[in-house]
Amino acid sequence: MPVGLCAERVVVVTGAGRGLGRAHALAFAAEGARVVVNDLGVGLDGTAAGADSPAAQVVAEIEAAGGAAVAHGGDIATSEGAASLVRTALETYGRLDTLVNNAGFLRDRMLVNLDEDDWDAVMRVHLKGHFLPLKHAAAWWRAEAKAGRPVAARVINTSSGAGLLGSVGQGNYSAAKAGILGLTAVAAAEMGRYGVQVNAIAPAARTRMTEETFAATMAAPGEGAFDEMAPENVSPLVVWLGSTASEGVTGRVFEVEAGKVTVMEGWRRGPSADKGARWAPGEVGEVALKLLASAEVPGAVYGAG
């Protein structure tokens, strides 16, 4: 009988062949979960990367350590791929308890050089690739709840500091990751009645997407030093959020990096003024400047200045 924080839970992790997804899959398995390891096996920019299956390699690692896992190589940014992902969990293990949406890639350009295809491709894998697995998983959980069967489901979405603050040269990625935050809030509000909790993380770690873009900050430390950018640092929070131990935590965003966890507080109303009637343009401009003078200054966009 598996033991651990996630014993007997069935967990799906997308983009789990490498980087953060691989670390999450291994960490869940170490806590007793049965894991569906999804990975399309593409390159950093989303193009085909060869015949080797990263998902199968992670499954082999989990099984070698005594765990249970199955590979899924479908495209979760398509309805059929997302549906087959959920079916794989149900047909293999008979249930689904936790969904970790993690898959993604980069096509970085300054806005004036950003092609429409590069915009669409990043939106597709990050934002649509979160929506479709969530939609299909949520439909099954809702059906279970309506049938009177208890549901203690968890969804962990993957945003980014770029989604929270923006990142120069990553307009497409920043917009997609900001969209994931909105999706998380809505899903948490809609699905809570069915026993589903939905949260998001904004991780900082060394992955294929970051080790080149932020090479200096992502470099591995010297021997014996704490590796602050190791993707394994992020996984403990993801595992906890994916377990029943996180009961009552939903609709929240956590920034996680190295040994630091931060609850992000998001957009909140700051200073305001109400005339009770329509403003004139010059009049409202003066009021806006006064409000800005007493408001908090936004965090700096990554890469600016």
Rank of each mutant, 00 (worst) to 15 (best):
A103R: 00
G305D: 09
F214A: 05
W141R: 02
E232P: 05
G222T: 04
V36W: 02
H24S: 06
G94L: 01
E212F: 13
A245G: 15
G104Y: 07
I180H: 09
G182E: 02
L99R: 07
G303D: 12
T207D: 02
K146G: 06
G129H: 11
V58N: 03
V12Y: 03
A176L: 05
P231C: 07
T158C: 05
G242C: 13
L164F: 13
E31A: 00
V3E: 01
S79I: 10
G67Q: 02
A143K: 09
R269L: 15
G179D: 07
D52S: 10
L99I: 05
A65S: 09
F214G: 01
A68E: 10
R252L: 13
A204W: 15
V125L: 06
A138Q: 00
L237V: 09
G66R: 05
F131C: 12
G15Y: 01
A162G: 15
S167F: 08
Y302W: 15
G195R: 04
S174D: 12
V12D: 05
V11Y: 05
T98C: 14
E212C: 11
R154G: 12
V37M: 04
G169D: 04
E8L: 06
T47C: 13
V35W: 11
L237D: 12
L5D: 03
L164W: 13
M229K: 15
A137P: 02
R278W: 14
A300M: 15
A137Q: 04
R193F: 02
S174M: 02
R95I: 08
G224L: 13
F214H: 08
V125S: 07
K290W: 00
V263C: 03
E257V: 15
A273W: 06
G299Y: 10
M209R: 05
L26E: 00
G282L: 10
R34L: 14
R124L: 09
T217G: 13
W140Y: 11
